[in-house]
Structure formats: C-alpha cells, structure tokens
Amino acid sequence: MTYWNQSIPQITNDQRIEIYEGIWNKPIKKVAKKYGISDTTLRKRCGLYGIPLPCAGYWAKKNYGKDVKVTPLPPVANHSKVYVTNYHLKFISGLDDYSYDALQNLNPLEILSDSSRSLLTQKLQKVGVFVNPDTYHEYIKKQIQDDKNKKLKAEALSKLSKKRIQSLTVHDRIRRFQKPSLLILHP
C-alpha cells in the first residue's frame, strides 16, 4: 500500500511532462536548480512521479554526438497517482485569460481539449445506470415511501384548506381574523 507523504508536493500531469522534458534536454543539476531543490531530491521525486531518468553516461554520449536512447514517459502508474493529479483530462489553452463570469457562462465540456472531451464521452457511454426498485435497501425503500406519503399528505391538506377558505362567508372571515379589542380601565 502506498501512503501519501504530505511533504512531497502534488503536481499536475502538465508539470510532470515539463519536468520530464527538462531532464532529458538538460543535465539534472540545472533542472533541479530551476525548481530550487537539490539534484538528489529531484531524482527521488522523479521516482515518485513516475518520470524515467537518463542512464549513466547519457550526457557524455550525447555530447560526443552518439545516438542515445530516450526512455518515453510512461502513463501515470499506481504509485504515482498519489502525487500526480489531472493526468486524464487536458484543458483548452488560454483558460487563465477567462474572467470568472465568462467561465461561469461556459458549458463545462467547452473548457476541455478535444482529446479529453472525446475520452470523457467515450467513458460515459460505457456507464449504465440501472434503476431497479426491487434491489433497493429496505431503508431506502422506506424513505421513498415516507417521501410519497408526506407529499400526498401535503397535497390533501392543501386541498382541504382551500375548500375551507372558500366555504367561509365574508362575515365569518371578518369575525375569524378580527383582532380582539383592548379595554382600558381607569380607576
């Protein structure tokens, strides 16, 4: 079982890709300096984030113009899911330029990239919701019946009170809603 260490910051998948590209294009010490941490710390975090590191001799071979093998970035694995967020969905570019009100007026699917929108649509089409009241738990069945009874009772009281008010004569209405007069007695 993997436990989440709160001292290790969570990153988005975009940040994960950025670190991966940085590590494979520059020496790890320069990339670590950019993030304000030591190269040892960056190596350890790369292990937690599921980012492959260049093997020993990678930079020497690259500097001499030899072909070097770049390990592709794997999908987020089980242990990395604790530290990497947003690894399935991608948002449209320029989302930071929208005002709060403009974002409120957008359809939620409009902020997703085309690939994320199609992935989400694909996944949701596989999800089926089956409503079978026979399989409900007894407490849920009781709650549904209680809700129906309350609704029927409220409707019946509403109809009854409407009939009563209509049947009262004008005199009864006045007498019924009239405030009692106050008597002031002087000694």
Rank of each mutant, 00 (worst) to 15 (best):
K29N: 06
D101F: 02
L103Y: 04
K44V: 01
L95E: 07
V127I: 15
K150E: 14
N107I: 09
K29H: 06
G22T: 01
P54S: 07
M1A: 06
Q104W: 06
K26I: 03
F130W: 12
L160E: 15
P54A: 05
K126F: 11
V70A: 07
K34F: 09
E138Y: 08
L168K: 08
Q145F: 10
T12M: 01
L106R: 07
W24V: 01
H88I: 04
S38V: 02
E18Q: 09
N78P: 03
A154W: 12
S7C: 01
Q166H: 07
F177L: 00
I165T: 12
K69S: 12
K33V: 06
V170W: 06
R45K: 11
Q6Y: 04
N25V: 00
L182G: 01
Y58K: 11
R164D: 11
V129S: 12
Q15C: 03
K151C: 13
Q6A: 08
R173D: 01
L103H: 02
R175N: 00
K62T: 09
I165A: 13
D96G: 12
T169K: 06
L48S: 02
R117F: 07
A60D: 14
I111K: 10
L112Q: 04
N63V: 11
P9G: 02
N63W: 11
L119M: 13
G22K: 04
Y64C: 14
D134P: 08
Y83H: 04
L185N: 04
W59S: 10
G22Q: 05
P180G: 02
Y58W: 10
L89V: 05
L109P: 03
K179Q: 03
P108F: 10
V70C: 10
D14M: 00
S161C: 12
T121K: 13
K61E: 15
R173H: 02
W59H: 08
E110K: 08
P72L: 09
K123C: 11
V31K: 04
I92L: 08
K123R: 13
K26F: 09
D101C: 01
P9D: 05
